[in-house]
Design a protein around this nucleic acid. Sequence first.
DNA 1: GCTATTAGTTTCGACTCGATACGATAAGAA
DNA 2: TTCTTATCGTATCGAGTCGAAACTAATAGC
Lengths: 197, 197
Amino acid sequence: MCTQPTGNIDKEELKRLLDRLGRMSRGLQYCHGLNPAQWDCLRFIGQANRFSRTPGALAAFLGTTKGTASQTLNALEKKGYLIRVPDPNDKRVRHIELTELGAGLLADDPLNYLDRAISNLPPETVDTMATGLSRLCAEMQSRCGGQDLGICQSCGYFEGETDGGNMMCGLKQAELSGEDATRFCVNFSPVNETRDC
Amino acid sequence: MCTQPTGNIDKEELKRLLDRLGRMSRGLQYCHGLNPAQWDCLRFIGQANRFSRTPGALAAFLGTTKGTASQTLNALEKKGYLIRVPDPNDKRVRHIELTELGAGLLADDPLNYLDRAISNLPPETVDTMATGLSRLCAEMQSRCGGQDLGICQSCGYFEGETDGGNMMCGLKQAELSGEDATRFCVNFSPVNETRDC
DNA sequence: GCTATTAGTTTCGACTCGATACGATAAGAA
DNA sequence: TTCTTATCGTATCGAGTCGAAACTAATAGC
């Protein structure tokens, strides 16, 4: 004898499920000797483009302070999953690079379980969910700060196919490799107003 | 100029949005001098029925250890948001009760922002999202442990309207108040067949 | 009565967290 | 050129989380 579903109950259920999925995802990330914050860091470095693999960008993305990010980087560097190399131009900046060990570990990302679960959903469901979540994120973002990331190719600063067929970043005035252009960038800015399509 | 949505991109986007929403929700919960774990605890105590307001049940729900749960309870008790009272029947058990201060704080739960955002979504979207998330949770649960909760009224142990119109819990052999029956219970077991595991 | 089992707590070491102070470097103004 | 300010990253602090393990006390099964 189930209770009849009313609109209100569905909303409560949605909230509960979001909470639950978040908790499960978090719990999964205590593995391979890492914790959720360290996985977040490793994942970001693996997905960020050249300009964004710095302690400051990491902190901005994770919504934490530079101090905290620096400590997480210390922990991962000590474990041998990444290294920090000085920037030749700006001596204040250090670039973060995954080691081979770190890249290998990323293949065992516990959140890959989520990927597989998503793959088993009907495409229409995935589409509706993405749209709904996008709206939730947008509304939440207006309340708290936080920074959304996007890839260069859909960024307002992107200047594609100039002259010799090269891609450029109008902000950094730097050439983009094919790899750069398809990774996340902290300087991402939507093309024209409305956020993620 | 949006990129054409293909099935694969949508899936990546869904994963990214789930991650992002989780991070924002988490970030919101550093407020009023509490942290996410402490809010989780407070929220659980506010939603759990009489049988579930114990340190053990809290640990089971949060997917953590009893030791960690005990420490979080220490922190909240020291701040005056809850108290632990001994069970008169079983001297091993301590029941957790919110103080007036704790109940008041719960009204300022930062996740209420999420409620409001959900309320602005179309009902069909909420419905589809809840269904999809439910499937994701189910698949994730088969990989990691974790425990789902439900309310007594939809539990297999629920014996409603016996004799004098009272509700009973068949497991605990105890009478349920109206309040108990509509709250979460750690002993929840779906009506027919499969328990988790 | 004796032995599991269960509930809860404490302690340990590694780590996160925000806050703050700090030391460099870079960029802009006087 | 200097002086000032902004930026980038790090180190330190105290409170608190995390799992793991050891521990106490009370219950349940035999």
